[in-house]
Design a protein around this nucleic acid. Sequence first.
DNA 1: GGCCTCATTGGACCTAGGTCCAATGGCGGA
DNA 2: TCCGCCATTGGACCTAGGTCCAATGAGGCC
Lengths: 210, 210
Amino acid sequence: MSTSSQTVFIVDDDSSICRSLSRLVRSVGLEAQAFTSAEEFLEARPESFQRPACLVLDLQMPGIGGLELQRELSDSPAPCPVIFISGNGDIPLTVQAMKQGAVTFLSKPFDDESLLQSIGEALEKHHRLLVSVCQVQAIRDRMDGLTEREREVMGWVITGALNKQIAANLGIAEKTVKVHRGRVMEKMHVASVAELVRLCETAGFAEAGK
Amino acid sequence: MSTSSQTVFIVDDDSSICRSLSRLVRSVGLEAQAFTSAEEFLEARPESFQRPACLVLDLQMPGIGGLELQRELSDSPAPCPVIFISGNGDIPLTVQAMKQGAVTFLSKPFDDESLLQSIGEALEKHHRLLVSVCQVQAIRDRMDGLTEREREVMGWVITGALNKQIAANLGIAEKTVKVHRGRVMEKMHVASVAELVRLCETAGFAEAGK
DNA sequence: GGCCTCATTGGACCTAGGTCCAATGGCGGA
DNA sequence: TCCGCCATTGGACCTAGGTCCAATGAGGCC
């Protein structure tokens, strides 16, 4: 189960809580890294783009609060899931946290079991996210290797347009389209239009406009 | 804005709340339908498969509770969004409700504005859901018109397999594959493999196994 | 038994997609 | 200015996809 190299970041202004949570997390074989403020965490910004990770975050903290930090992180390409812990949270805050994608919201005091379970859930979630982000990135990388024209042709191809139609739309010879098309298939590493369509779908590539 | 024929279902064991909420909802031009218990609602089961709708649900009720009703409904093909209202909810319940997909969770007393805004959000969400469910259904309908063999061939086509490969996999002549394939394109109303792949993707059709 | 649907094929034929070789012209860099 | 990348085409040729007409055989249904 507990593969190493999965990190749990802990952000709480109470350093004794940081310590005890770190101990708890490490006791189940996970890595722990604690910060006593959102600012400190943001500065270190332990980019978790490789290994699954999650964040155990205190809601109320001086300076940048938990919700703000969560929002901040959500811009990241693969934001790590957040578990909120709070001494005196209320329902509106809980709702907001959950709407922003929190895995859960625990009120202090909470039992270790609940937290560990949520952590497991969060790590699992982040793992899936990382895998999917990684796949998308690989596709994007290939697309970056295309020339402008090739991308344009690809846009039409994935809509099912015939070479002659594409040629007409771009105002070039059908022959030329064939050449571009062939290069697209080669650079994207696919052998069929079906595969190409799939790639573009999973990478969120919008088809040719108009 | 407020198109008619959008219905807000209200389920609360306190009939005076039902009345006042119904009045509020109607005051902004929406239809309201109130029930004083989950059982009553389930019995009437006003199937909301056509028009956008949402549910304003009391958390605590004798008999079937709000969370249970929400779970019950979530099996539906196009479950209508739920807005919880509660006199004495707590954070764990809020978390559970949100995890189960609730739009929001309001504590009594709440101001009308908040509720109306959440209702708008919920109706909008349900509208989008209905549209997408509707599209998927249309595609499924076409797929139902396919024979077993045709579905099988389609499964291979959308993976980009060549006719000869499909023929080999099915142990039949390439010629036969062409015939099936042609019928698939016709019955699915598409002119290209690209479109076919798209349809199957949005309908969640799993490609041929093995 | 007669009718109908479906799966299967053959043959003839046409179109679309794709590759190889070759060549031209524009553009930005070294 | 010469080189390399890119867009564009032509011509020859081959393969894959697709249609029309026609026909056979297995199962089901009335």
